[in-house]
Design a protein around this nucleic acid. Structure first.
Lengths: 221, 221
DNA sequence: AGAACACTTACAGTTCTTGTAAGGTTTCTT
DNA sequence: AAGAAACCTTACAAGAACTGTAAGTGTTCT
């Protein structure tokens, strides 16, 4: 594992954590503007988030819930409130681990190492809109269903999921599919899109691939 | 999830756990002969094991380590020794979760529910001899490498991994491959074995598919 | 040595995947 | 409203992948 994002408003605590984690070999980033916590985290694309529950202004639970709904980032909740209620609620809304502060450094590292197992399994999984795409096997997971996509389908869906809700222009798709932006057979791309859309429809996926006329495509949900 | 095996020598504690878990909808089995703990667990093929550390005679750590080396069963270690050292060591040797007794029922259930995420991801994964086969996607994981097998290859390997180190007779393989034990084209099976062996060799797998003359095949490592 | 069993290679039918072509539909502009 | 541009859909065919069959070779047992 590489990147961990620490979400902690107490300066002393945050620096302490950062130091320990970096000593242990992790690449640590921190959140500075707590009004945009989720955005900052997503921009840093960490594999793990250390989340303090009592943030200034924002509710820690809400951050966790939002992160989990928008991504599959692994979340370790840290709090000084040593209450069973907090632990239950944190796990309930999808946190992957819960520890109370002050926390022994070795315990924290052991738990993080334990979480890496889970993270490794999620690796190479692109998620969005209820879809989960494994590029290693070109397999698409939708709820209970599991479908093996063709390489072309997987390539396109990967590009779309890498930029959820925003435009993927045709050049990008040409590049991803055929390794060049020059060779332009618009039709080949159109056919590929039709095929992908058809297999998504079969799965009754609520996600929609929207055409942006003259520019490209984007996925929405 | 369905099955949980409880490994606990204290009668009162064990029955208490069993009751709570069954109330929560799990199918619970227990280990009776602690000299054959690992064998009993493996025979029950649970998705999760609740393991008490101080068992009569046997060392709990050893049980955990053996379980983890022989299978990918998820292990939750329970102990009354509330020592950081125990927690670190348990996690170190591969335990998936660590809790101290007496443990609040709701906390235990919340942690179990949390483990189910991990279990779900491991589901449909057959392991053995450094191989990991995902039958949902017919993908074989060997160390860093990832290979998509053909359905035939995956079917055979599945049968072999289901009975590691012991014989899989031809009838079983005919059944798995073509749905009948009657239709016997020995040669078709032989060709299929050759193909599987070839793809395993490409991956420089140390596992060996051994022919048992006149009866079938078995995998060893 | 012969028989039984197993292994390997090559070939062919089938299916899957993908590029191409052709025609239809939608959207934009004037 | 008409024409053009962009996009969608369907069908066809070449190539690759998968699997069963056949034939010949190698190995093991008696």
């Amino acid at each position: 594992m590489r990147r961990i994002t620490v979400v902690e408003d107490d300066n002393f605590m945050r620096e302490e954590l950062q130091y320990r984690l970096e000593q242990a070999g992790y690449e640590v980033s921190v959140v500075t503007d707590f009004s945009k916590t989720v955005e900052e985290i997503q921009a840093q694309t960490p594999e793990l988030v250390l989340l303090d529950l009592n943030l200034p202004g924002k509710n820690g639970y809400a951050v966790c819930r939002e992160l989990k709904s928008k991504s599959s980032i692994t979340v370790l909740v840290l709090t000084s409130r040593d209450q069973l209620k907090d632990e239950l609620q944190a796990l309930e809304i999808g946190a992957d681990e819960f520890l109370t502060k002050p926390c022994h450094g070795e315990r924290l590292l052991a738990r993080i190492r334990n979480l890496e197992k889970r993270i490794d399994q999620q690796q190479n999984r692109l998620e969005g809109g209820g879809l989960s795409l494994d590029r290693q096997t070109d397999t698409l997971y939708v709820g209970e269903e599991v479908v093996r996509l063709t390489e072309q389908e997987a390539t396109i869906l990967e590009q779309l999921l890498l930029h959820p809700g925003s435009l993927v222009n045709k050049q990008q798709l040409f590049q991803a599919l055929w390794g060049t932006e020059e060779y332009i057979d618009e039709n080949a791309l159109q056919v590929a899109m039709t095929r992908l859309r058809k297999t998504l429809t079969k799965l009754s996926v609520e996600s929609r691939i929207v055409t942006v006329r003259g520019r490209g495509y984007q996925i929405e949900w």
